[in-house]
């Protein structure tokens, strides 16, 4: 494998590829902490948190593209990082209203589940709340 100075970040969801760009650095939030991937990193497989993926915009010093992902995992090998997630959105594509609605809905569900001690629903509501808040956070950066 020849040494390269860039890596490709590819984000795929069941509804198609969301993002594909070359970059010099990508930062992923995994379930156990943040990892930064530079070109020629060793192959990595990591599960992601419901959070953002930050990809340095090529040719800039400290500008990052921020992409909201809902969990999933990242696979890095041969200088290609593939994020496989159920959904992912670029910062500018986030539907604020929808996310806000989802947040309200999740909060209501959460409150109800707490009252009824329904652990199953509680967990599910927490996840959807996290997803909604993640979207909102990223779009407000």
């Amino acid at each position: 494998m020849a040494e390269q100075s860039v890596l490709t970040v590819n984000i795929v969801t069941p509804d198609g590829s969301v993002y594909e760009e070359q970059t010099t650095m990508a930062i992923f939030k995994t379930t156990v902490g943040e990892i930064g991937v530079l070109p020629n990193h060793v192959p990595v497989l990591a599960s992601l948190q419901i959070d953002e993926v930050r990809v340095k915009i090529d040719g800039t010093d400290d500008k990052f593209e921020e992409i909201a992902v809902s969990g999933g995992f990242v696979e890095f090998s041969n200088n290609i990082a593939t994020v496989v997630a159920n959904s992912a959105e670029l910062k500018e594509n986030i539907d604020l209203e929808r996310a806000e609605r989802a947040r309200k809905r999740a909060e209501e569900k959460l409150a109800r589940a707490k009252q009824e001690h329904d652990v199953d629903t509680l967990r599910r509501a927490e996840v959807s709340l996290r997803r909604a808040v993640n979207r909102l956070n990223i779009s407000k950066h």
């Binding site: 995994t30 379930t31 990892i35 192959p43 599960s47």
Partner: peptide, 13 residues
Amino acid sequence: YEMEPSQDAILEV
């Protein structure tokens, strides 16, 4: 691969 956090944990996801 380097597994982060572990193989089983990733499989869980």
